[in-house]
Amino acid sequence: MTALRIGKGVQILLLAALYVFLYGPIIYITYVSFQANSVWPFPPEFTAKHYISLWNEENYHSGFVNSLAIGIGTGVIASVLATMAAVAILKYRVRRSVYIAGLFLMPLFIAHILIGVSSLMFNKMLLGLPGNIFSAILANATYATAFAFLVVVAQLARYDWRLDEAAMVFGATPGTTFREVTFPLIWPAILGAFIVSFLLAFNNLEISFYNLGATPTLPTLAWGSLRHGVSEELYALAALINVAVFIFLGVMYVLLRTGVVRLDYKD
């Protein structure tokens, strides 16, 4: 019994350590982003100058718009494709659908740099396409689909597909069934998939970098700036992106937990 308690105590301690490890740098950089002296910001001397210089840097404006476009484009493609596949696999339970699931999860096991350079060369050499925002969206959507698929499958595992059968018996066509029953119950999962794939693509460097040509995004600008020694507006950028990620995940949490629609419906 005592051994068990010690075990549990160690686990709690490690969990706490993990959060310190994960969030220490994030909290510190947020703190630094408000400090006049970024190298040794003690005692604190608050300032908003990094945020102002971030705002004044025109590059970051177009970078933000491009990142947004890549995030939204990727998010839409990935969540739609992943939802269709997840519904098909979980609802129809066709034999050997596990291989299809494998195909959708495959991008998780491929290094981003390989996805980046292979689509760069494929587009350029075989299709004659120069790098642009669309090729970046398509390349990002491959691995984002895998993440979106995971999110949707995880959520839909609880869905009772017999509800769809009930709708069909009462006269709903497959299309109507999806609109009336399936979608109203699973939309939080789809939105969750969109949020995750949007954030991944918005913040992606390795894939976007090789497929963008000269189009700047926030991560490629940050990369350039970091390469020439840190410029201080990066701290402000990092702090803002972290806040945005947290807001998105907060939305997701509220949806999954307190929404009117609960996926854990089952008597």
């Binding site: 009772d160 017999r162 509800l163 059968e165 009930a166 709708a167 069909m168 018996v169 009462f170 006269g171 709903a172 066509t173 109507t176 029953v181 109203p184 119950l185 009117v260 629609v261 609960r262 419906y265 008597d267």
Partner: peptide, 20 residues
């Protein structure tokens, strides 16, 4: 015919009411 064109009623095990 698919189920939705058979014009029947059905009561399911576990009721299967639409929760939303």
């Amino acid at each position: 015919e698919p189920p939705y064109r058979r014009g029947i009623g059905m009561v399911f095990q576990d009721f299967l009411l639409f929760p939303h």
